[in-house]
Simulated scan of single mutants.
Amino acid sequence: MSATSAGSHVSGPSIDVLIPAIEKDLATLPYVIDSLRSYVLHPISHIYIVSPGSSRIREMCSRKGCIFVDETTVLPFTKKDIRYSSSRWNRSGWLYQQLLKLNGDHICRENYFLVIDADTVLIRPHRFRSAGKTVFYCRNWSQPEYFRTYRKLMGTAAPSPKSFVTHYMLFEKSKLAALKRTIEARHGMPWHAAIIRSIDRKKQFGFSEFETYANYVYSGNRASVLLRNANNKSLKTSASAVGIKQRRKLARTYRSISFHQRKGYSIRAKH
Rank of each mutant, 00 (worst) to 15 (best):
K202I: 01
R222Y: 01
I47L: 04
Y96K: 04
E23D: 15
Y168Q: 14
S160Y: 01
S234P: 06
V17Q: 08
T182F: 12
R63L: 05
S208W: 08
I183F: 01
K203F: 09
P43H: 03
S219T: 00
K233F: 10
S51K: 04
I123L: 06
V135I: 12
L235E: 03
P190A: 11
R262C: 12
Y213L: 10
H126Q: 08
W94Y: 13
L29T: 00
H126L: 11
R262F: 10
K245N: 08
S266L: 11
M154V: 04
Y48H: 13
P125I: 03
H167P: 05
K263V: 12
K180Q: 15
G93A: 09
R129S: 07
S130Y: 08
R37L: 07
S224F: 01
P76C: 03
S174N: 08
I15N: 03
N231R: 15
D34Q: 14
R148C: 06
A214Q: 06
I199A: 04
D119I: 02
A118G: 07
Y112C: 05
L226T: 10
N229H: 07
H187W: 04
N111I: 01
Y96R: 01
R37K: 15
R124T: 14
P13C: 06
A239C: 10
A214R: 11
C138G: 00
S86A: 10
P13F: 01
P159R: 06
K180H: 06
S2R: 12
A118Y: 03
D25V: 08
Q246E: 14
R201Q: 05
R129K: 09
V242S: 06
H106Q: 15
R148S: 13
F147C: 06
V121P: 02
L235G: 03
S130Q: 12
Q143G: 00
L250D: 05
K202A: 13
Y146E: 11
T253S: 11
P125V: 03
H260S: 13
T134Y: 00
Q98E: 14
L227I: 05
S38T: 10
E23Q: 12
I123T: 07
S208D: 10
Q261G: 13
S258T: 15
L176Q: 09
T28F: 00
P159A: 07
S224E: 04
I107E: 09
I33Q: 02
N221Q: 00
K152Q: 11
H106M: 13
N140P: 10
V74P: 06
L41C: 14
